[in-house]
Simulated assay, not measured.
Amino acid sequence: MKKLLLIFILTGLINAGYAQAGRDTIKLADPTIFYENHVYYLYGTGNPDGFGVYTSDDMQHWKLHDKPALLKGSSYGRQGFWAPQVFKHHSSYYMAYTADEHIAIASSDSPLGPFVQHIHHPVSEPGKQIDPFIFRDTDGKFYLYHVRLGRGNRIYVARLKDDLSDIDSTTLTECIHAEQGWENTASSDWPVSEGPTVTKIGGLYYLFYSANDFRNIDYAVGYATATSPYGPWTKYTGNPILSRKNTGQNGSGHGDVFATANGAWYYVFHTHSSSSIVGKRKTAVVKLSISGKNPAVISVISGTFRYLETGP
């Protein structure tokens, strides 16, 4: 009995010391990571008035900056600040994001922000649009992948104008929608495919996406390939590649693919808060394996799942 009591005391002291050290799990949904000059910048959904930014030089220890990267009033939107993505073009940084269930693009001279619009406006196409991801092709052309709300959440693409101010609506093309069993385990009348991320390996385009409602424990990630940024897209037969079956956590999905300083590939995403509670969703990462070619087979490396944490 004394031995058991001692174990409890020691466990409590260890946990207390851990808490005092400031190691807390980051709680951002729809996360994305931008890397430049030996620094990783993490953004995501979690602030009702915009987007904060965390930084790390090793992907192990993260710091939340005092000032937000984008604050309501400095750019388009009043509420529903969701799913940001940051990229660099020439000497400026851009953030594509959702607000008021529309998509906007703000700019800054630093990845820390502040990201602003001199004229507050969304992408001009009508209808509700969320989850932007801007992909720059090897020929320098930019494409906006995003979700449109109609007969479910469906992923579309359109060319961006050269000044990144808006899309060329004549190029708007549907990419994929949820139609396979794993993509709609609840048999919902509103099937969901969302959270697009696109990369190019060799001559092929890889579109990563999440399926099912984010509140569903079966929220998961798959990918599709194409020889053109417009498609047609062929879904990988081994989908989903990321789900609660290989993370052990409900609601695993909606993230971003990125490469580290040494060229390793990772996927950052969110999970439910616990086995019984959805929010606040927690931010996690897994390492990816890329094998073969035309197309490459992409999979999650077993044992690499971990949550991102703040602190020393």
Rank of each mutant, 00 (worst) to 15 (best):
Y219T: 00
D131L: 07
K2E: 10
G231F: 00
A69K: 13
A21D: 03
A106Y: 04
K245M: 12
R281Q: 11
T283W: 11
L4K: 11
G255Y: 11
K235F: 07
T283I: 13
I33M: 01
E309W: 12
K2N: 13
S108G: 07
T227E: 13
Y94G: 04
N184A: 02
Y230M: 04
G150F: 02
F87Q: 03
W62E: 00
E36A: 03
A99E: 05
K293P: 05
T55N: 02
D58W: 03
S169A: 15
Y230V: 01
G50K: 01
H120A: 15
I26K: 03
Y209C: 09
V53H: 01
S187L: 12
H254L: 10
H272A: 12
F142P: 03
P312E: 14
R154N: 14
N250M: 07
K141C: 10
V268C: 06
K128V: 08
E179G: 13
S252K: 09
L10S: 08
Q20S: 01
S107L: 00
S243R: 10
D218P: 00
S108L: 03
T227D: 10
F115E: 02
S210M: 04
Y230K: 11
P232Y: 08
Y266N: 02
H146M: 12
E125W: 09
D24A: 12
Q180S: 09
G222Q: 02
S91L: 11
Y35D: 03
Y143T: 02
K287C: 03
V192Y: 02
S228Y: 12
D168H: 15
P31H: 14
H38Y: 15
F115W: 02
N216M: 06
G12Q: 09
W265E: 07
R215Q: 02
E125Y: 10
L160W: 14
V53K: 08
E174A: 09
P132T: 05
S56A: 08
F8S: 14
V297H: 15
K128D: 05
E309M: 15
D162C: 05
Y97F: 08
N47E: 14
I26T: 02
G202F: 14
S274W: 14
R136M: 08
H121L: 08
L64W: 06
W265S: 10
Q79W: 04
T199Y: 15
V285C: 01
A16I: 15
Y40C: 10
S273K: 07
D166T: 14
L172Y: 08
L164V: 00
S276A: 11
P114V: 06
T185E: 04
Y236V: 03
Y266L: 06
G263R: 06
P48S: 13
A158K: 07
S91M: 09
S124M: 09
S252N: 07
A178I: 04
S75Y: 01
E174M: 15
